[in-house]
Simulated assay, not measured.
Amino acid sequence: MKIIRNGNFAPWFRILLWATGIAIAAASYFLLSGIEKFVGVVIGMIVLATGTYAERANMLHLKPFDDSYKKARKSYERDDDESKK
């Protein structure tokens, strides 16, 4: 079971993040009080936002969790080495 597949979270993990975020926020809102309620709702919204971000990236065929930046960095290093010679 891989969490990251093809540069994005796996579908089951995106749904899990979304449902967990809603559950944390709702449970904090209804069961806690004071600053604990605020912190719980904020954490729940952050988890929910992460799942939503990954789902939207999937719909747009983006790969936010890909490691292609390493390939780009290596290609720039080769270009810099050739220009110094």
Rank of each mutant, 00 (worst) to 15 (best):
K74T: 07
Y76G: 05
I3A: 06
R5K: 15
I24Q: 04
D80R: 15
E55Y: 10
K37P: 02
K63I: 00
T50S: 00
Y76L: 14
L31W: 01
G21E: 03
P11N: 14
Y29R: 11
A57T: 06
G44I: 02
V42H: 10
K85V: 08
T20D: 01
N8F: 04
L62G: 05
F9P: 02
L32F: 10
E55S: 15
Y76V: 11
L48G: 00
M59N: 08
V42N: 09
M45T: 08
Y76K: 13
Y29N: 12
D79C: 01
W18E: 01
A23F: 07
Y69N: 10
I22D: 02
T50I: 03
E77M: 07
D80N: 15
L16D: 03
L62V: 10
G7Y: 01
E77W: 01
G7H: 00
D80H: 14
L48C: 04
K84D: 14
L60Y: 13
A27M: 09
I46N: 07
D66N: 06
E36P: 07
T50Q: 07
A72P: 05
K85N: 14
D66H: 01
A10C: 08
D66W: 01
S83Q: 14
K37H: 03
E82A: 15
L31D: 09
E36C: 05
I3Q: 01
I22N: 00
E36D: 12
K71D: 08
A57E: 03
P64W: 03
E82P: 03
M1E: 07
E36H: 09
M1G: 09
F30C: 06
A19V: 11
I46F: 13
W18P: 00
A49L: 11
F65H: 04
G7K: 00
G7A: 04
